[in-house]
């Protein structure tokens, strides 16, 4: 989780990722940031995020994103 927050801060450092639950809804992460994020996560955590998972529910908070990563890692 700590590494995920570091990745998020590299993309946009003006957000409190521990508490924010509106990363997409409030446009803290735009469509370009999502592509950066997907690439960084895939490299760092050795998962592939399918396009079907690119939905606000999975990207609105660091916690939701972490849950997605864990789920994809489990599914292998």
């Amino acid at each position: 989780m700590e590494r995920l927050i570091e990745i998020l801060q590299e993309i946009n450092d003006g957000v409190d990722y521990e508490t924010c639950t509106t990363l997409i809804d409030e446009r803290y992460l735009d469509s370009l940031a999502i592509i950066s994020l997907v690439a960084a996560i895939e490299e760092e955590f050795d998962v592939q995020i399918p396009t079907v998972e690119i939905v606000p529910e999975n990207f609105n908070s660091a916690k939701a994103l972490w849950n997605l990563i864990e789920r994809l890692q489990e599914e292998g």
Binding site: E10, I11, S31, L32, I35, S36, V38, A39, A40, E42, E43, I49, T51, I54
Partner: peptide, 23 residues
């Protein structure tokens, strides 16, 4: 932007030109 081809481009470009211009 998330086709395999584009993912490969992004992965390579990130290393060369960083995590903003790469993606």
């Amino acid at each position: 932007s998330l086709t395999q081809k584009c993912r490969d481009i992004t992965a390579k470009a990130r290393k060369k030109i960083g995590n903003y211009y790469g993606p």
